[in-house]
Design a protein around this nucleic acid. Structure first.
Lengths: 142, 142
DNA sequence: TCTTGACCTCAAGTTGACTTTAAGTAGTAG
DNA sequence: CTACTACTTAAAGTCAACTTGAGGTCAAGA
């Protein structure tokens, strides 16, 4: 596959694919003249990368998790650490989601005065402040 | 409270507090000479902001949700939209977490060959690629 | 009163993840 | 064989969210 095919099928722009290759996140299997050629499994790899991004990992972390080379000979302890991190994030997001849902429905004059909202947010915020600011999430918004 | 007290209690650096005030995310209640003074409830507001960050909202979005002014007169539909977004993210993260946990335990030669891993990742990745790249999360790492 | 240190402002710098641009190359249709 | 187009590289630009630095101010303790 050439780069534009990969771009079309994956939804990842060609410029990003080159950038990823530069960073060692993906590899092309050869060239036809100057043009990169990619193997079919690149799509799977890109899906995993996208997934890692959604999960809050930086490209560097992803390349650690996935392994730069072919066989992802992964540090199992690190995986568990990541899983635990993720779990904490999930808890917060869940409380946040419930808080938002409730806020949308709640009739209290101000959300900050609604005890339910406060409880949910308190739950979510516990440790959101102070202590290493675990993970933040950022909308890609392009 | 002066800025350094707020910084100490919240864990948010003074520079960030000034930045947030600049952006209108928080407000100081006055000055003593040049020095900002903050009300006690600033801590709660900061917790909410931190929470919003964890949940994947940009500072601008947070200021929308929280309302720039005093009474968070919130757009309920927007809240529901955000809640739904969040829910999708949570699903992915959950699959991702399970995938990571499994990968740490799995004995398959390569995770990419383990059917369980592939199923989990497939679940998580569905829509991770192609279609608007919802939210990503990023470690703060400072 | 004088000094000190914590605050102030404003501008510029940093980081991660890309995107854009300029200038060049090469496979393919005519 | 020429022209066209899609690719190539390298470097610079962008964006959000901050941080850092230079130069200035001022409340409080010796």
């Amino acid at each position: 596959m050439d780069i534009s095919t990969v771009a079309k099928r994956s939804g990842v722009p060609a410029s990003t694919l080159r950038y990823y290759e530069d960073k060692g996140l993906i590899q092309s299997v050869g060239r036809k003249g100057l043009q990169r050629l990619f193997a079919a499994n690149i799509l799977e790899r890109l899906a995993l990368i996208a997934l890692g991004r959604v999960a809050g990992f930086s490209l560097d972390e992803i390349s650690n998790i996935l392994g730069a080379g072919e066989n992802p000979d992964i540090d199992r302890e690190m995986l568990l650490t990541k899983a635990t991190e993720l779990d904490r994030t999930i808890q917060k997001l869940t409380a946040m989601r419930d808080g938002l849902q409730h806020a949308a429905a709640c009739t209290a004059p101000s959300h900050l005065e609604c005890p339910r909202f406060r409880r949910l947010m308190g739950l979510a915020a516990s440790g959101a402040i102070k202590g290493q600011p675990s993970n933040i999430a950022k909308p890609i918004s392009r």
